[in-house]
Design a protein around this nucleic acid. Structure first.
Lengths: 149, 149
DNA sequence: GTAGCTGCAAATTCTTTGCAGTTGT
DNA sequence: ACAACTGCAAAGAATTTGCAGCTAC
């Protein structure tokens, strides 16, 4: 039977209150505000558990680590901002794409990722970057991007 | 100045002779037939080098490790078979998708991945899987999938 | 001759797992 | 009580890097 621990609630809340898919490290940062001693292993264990029980959904973008969001919206896609690296939901879909596949191939599903600038990072001025949430997230991403350098 | 080593040629050839994007480990396996002592670090170093010089193209699919293919076809997409896990090029594109983005967002590009069955793994009979190349690749993928278990 | 390259081993990053102690029910 | 859970540290997998020796040019 599954228990209701402070840690699990904090993790679920962190994701529920975010308006976009979060990285495990971002979940940890957010959840630690409520449970300071929280460890990253517990975050990973709970993310896996919550996905299995259908509460969360894993979001995989090309070349990115897995993010997590609330299960809910069925089929949808994602948009990644090339400036702040954040990922947003896109509740639209191009529809049936089976016509694109090679002959003899059967298409069952598809993944689509759009790239560009989010509304906080307008393309006009590259040096802008003021919106609080965007700036906050950029630092998280900077830390994240240090991998393999 | 860049040199022309046996190792680099073997790596480039391995990718040139494949009909689909290869994982670094698959490149190593193929290139070692020509240069037995070849190490994985050399493969990674050359893949990065060849991408930078424009000879190769990195192929990132959601939740998959980076694969590599010859640069050539500009904008194209990919198809992954859910049975044999192999990835194939799709030389078609749904076209402009900016209409799908939220208001205030600017779309500059997109990535599309189709999922289903390739012509070697017909959906009719799940227990089939005979084609030699498919079987060969499946074992490579099995080894690959051992990660994090 | 020497700068670029290679193989090996060690380091890094992300994720998972073993274990001993803690806690929800 | 006791099984589920947690934090920590160690293990694993993919990728990168330091280094001493090799090799193309």
């Amino acid at each position: 039977m599954e228990r209701n621990t402070r840690q699990r609630s904090a993790i679920r809340d962190a994701i529920a209150q975010a308006d976009r898919p979060l990285l495990p490290q971002e979940v940890l940062d957010a959840a630690q505000r409520e449970v300071p001693g929280l460890g990253i292993a517990t975050v990973y264990r709970n993310l896996k558990l919550l996905v299995e029980e259908g509460a969360l959904q894993a979001v995989n973008l090309p070349g990115e680590n897995t993010r997590f969001e609330l299960m809910g919206h069925q089929h949808h896609h994602h948009f990644q901002c090339r400036q702040c690296q954040r990922v947003f939901d896109v509740h639209a879909c191009p529809g049936d794409l089976s016509r694109l596949a090679p002959k003899g191939f059967t298409v069952e599903d598809h993944d689509l990722t759009l790239y560009g600038r989010c509304s906080d990072c307008v393309p006009a001025r590259p040096g802008r970057a003021h919106a609080a949430s965007a700036e906050q997230d950029r630092s998280a991403m900077r830390a994240h991007k240090q991998k393999h350098r």
